[in-house]
Write a protein that binds this DNA or RNA. Sequence first.
DNA 1: AGCCAAAATAATGTATACACTTTTGGGCGG
DNA 2: CCGCCCAAAAGTGTATACATTATTTTGGCT
Lengths: 247, 247
Amino acid sequence: MSQEQTVYSKLRSMILNGDFDAGERLTEKMVCDTLGVSRTPVRAAFLQLAAQNLVIGQSNRGYTVRGITVDDVWGANVVRSVLEGAAAGMLARNGIDEAVRETLERSVEDYSQLARHVELSDGFLEAHSAANRTFHDTIVAETENQSLLRSIETLAYMPVQINRVVFASDRKFATETVQSGMAEHQNVLTALLTGDAMAAELLMRTHSQKALRGIEHVKEVLGLGPEYRQMPFHKFIGGLGISVVAA
Amino acid sequence: MSQEQTVYSKLRSMILNGDFDAGERLTEKMVCDTLGVSRTPVRAAFLQLAAQNLVIGQSNRGYTVRGITVDDVWGANVVRSVLEGAAAGMLARNGIDEAVRETLERSVEDYSQLARHVELSDGFLEAHSAANRTFHDTIVAETENQSLLRSIETLAYMPVQINRVVFASDRKFATETVQSGMAEHQNVLTALLTGDAMAAELLMRTHSQKALRGIEHVKEVLGLGPEYRQMPFHKFIGGLGISVVAA
DNA sequence: AGCCAAAATAATGTATACACTTTTGGGCGG
DNA sequence: CCGCCCAAAAGTGTATACATTATTTTGGCT
């Protein structure tokens, strides 16, 4: 992998894991010394981080880290829900072809299989995540709307997939979420097949918002007050003994 | 202005204006020679263009320009409509404070003033654009959702504001658009003030989609067939004798 | 002591040389 | 004539020196 990508992903995980204070200034030299590379790849990495709003750049004045709060993750998920809902609506309106229908049906079947025996093993979580992602990604991709696709991809650089993290800590919650998720996928698919755009959008949006319930669940498990939304996200998740992203 | 920004904006306008063929490969040296700068600012500019999907980068293989079709602009506007609609819905749900209400009311008033005497002068178009933008931007900004704001900003780098271009070519269409736009702003504002989230979202989305009608209007003026969606956008607009962005 | 200014320091912006990868084109063998 | 391979050319990736802009420190003055 190129050094540019290495620097980028390392900085990204450090920012998300809260290795820097919110608002802390990042100088190029500091990163160069830490990671042992020259300024060129560091500058490139900064530009990418800035494009995703993980750092804030000012001309001639370098970059500062943007602290990621629970509210930021919440907000990103709200946007994702809206966009995925819209994608489902478009697809229902335009109709889906045979191949797509099969892909979605298979993903729903896979999901249903998993819902029968919920485990907390890495293997299960991985399989669940894969089936879920296939369903969501297929719907978005099939709209063939580049802007929609790009917008969601950019959001995905934030830690929006909170469910997987939450699952690991609570079997009962995981079981409920997986089983209701299965039903929701089925309902969305039905709306897509019958061409009911409004239902498809609403059902998909509501389903996508499940991640928000995951956040609320963590809040309750940790017994936090209403001000938890302003917490740094890594501290919030850290309460479960889990880091946001692997290094 | 820094050379990096200069290179970025020049390349951007060249791409949008169709100075490059779709899929054409852009080498760093070529840009350096053309603009008379070194590779460093050029590389930085490429990274920014890639972040906005105006060029496509492959590691060790440079960048190729992504041809912007009418469909791309259409799709970007669809996404913008969805996001602005969602923003209005959120605002209606959360309620708006006094200052915001005043800003929006003033913008609607300004808009109404303009709607009385529609002209095609630069001054009028500028004033109309400003009043319109204030309304839209305020609603988005007041959600205080960074991801939403960022997503829309990124879209804005595509030539989504087609109306201004269309106006210049058709007085009747401009008049109708401005006057119905005024009514739509008023209706959205009413929904915001009464806290009717569903109405606010739907009205705002429908209003934002006006840009799509602008595209369809151009299509009809030019007497194009249904395949016009695949046309390069600059050629589409070029039919009116107008360039996409100023150099 | 406090404040302003100017110099020193540090940081970013830019240019360029070198390293590594990809592409190109020509020669050789089949 | 076609295909393969290797070398030359071109292009991107990285490091580093220099230029320009911000920040800090220091010294003198009030």
